[in-house]
Amino acid sequence: MPSPRWFAIGREPPPRRRNVLALLSFLLPLLLWSAVSYVPWIWHPLMRVNDAGTVEWFKPGLLVERAVFAEENAKAVTAGGRAATGERANPVFLPPPHAVGRALWTAFTTKPVLRDELWLHQSLLLSIRTIFLGFMLSSLFGVPLGILCGAYPPVARLFEPVIDFVRYMPAPAFGALAVAVLDIYAAPKIAIIVIGTFFQQVLVIANTVRRHDPALIEAAQTLGAGPRKLLLHVIIPSCLVDLYNDQRILLGWAWTYLIVAEVVGVSTGITFFIGQQAKYRNFDNVYAAIIIIGIIGLVTDQGLAFVGRRIFPWQPRAPSRLNAFLSLLGRKGGKTA
């Protein structure tokens, strides 16, 4: 069979090629990062001093700009002294992959610097709890209200104008207020997540419900379904898959409000951990923490997608990226065994 063309509009590549692309989507950025980190002549705008020579203010391990390094060496040589030696280096905020890889492990095993600081996993758990509670609270009211707005235009006319108005107020603006009302601990953080999520949620859910197929409603009516039964037995089930996917996207939305929420009141959680590590200039830990957030996000999202396919069996199966990825890993393992 001739191998299919790479660039055909709207045509899915064959499974094998799909898997390779999924793998490359992670490998390419990693490769780029490695190149910048390990190939000395790519970028590396600084010099790390090995031997200070006779330059007074140089110390071994010091990072200086290349121009300054050359200038100081020239001065030292003309003054009859010894030139400093060094190697090209990247700024401290770009640690190489292996350092971040090590930090991914050690971040969980290093003791906090101060006595009342938390371990990484404790910070993470705090953050996840904030997100979870905030999102649940928002969904508890946002989903039903969104469904009502989508199904009954008068409800939408009553609620949507004010929601549209509040939606444009940035959630952080409510930070001080939240602290004043809810004290400085977990409650105001959860409140920020709720404020950030709720208003978007109502509108997104309402829009999804509004797109229901009117033909199904009419079919149900000719089968004797009354107005109340229509909502419960036709409108909601017909939108269920889309609502579930909306919730997945909104959960990602809630994560973006985490940064704001965690600096409200007493700073805690993963954001605070990142801030602290940046202050100590442990950028490998900073990247490790950011990557961990990414992994948590990806795993939750794909996990939910996986669950979705199980609980909505009436959907025609579309190829899943996670499934493809797992099967690829599985096959790789099988081959080496």
Binding site: A215, E218, T222, F312, W314
Partner: peptide, 21 residues
Amino acid sequence: QGPCAARGMVFQGYTLFPWRT
């Protein structure tokens, strides 16, 4: 007046409920 089960309807577009067997 209004739809009821005594006048059943079959539509061109099938209109089966996709979430039901």
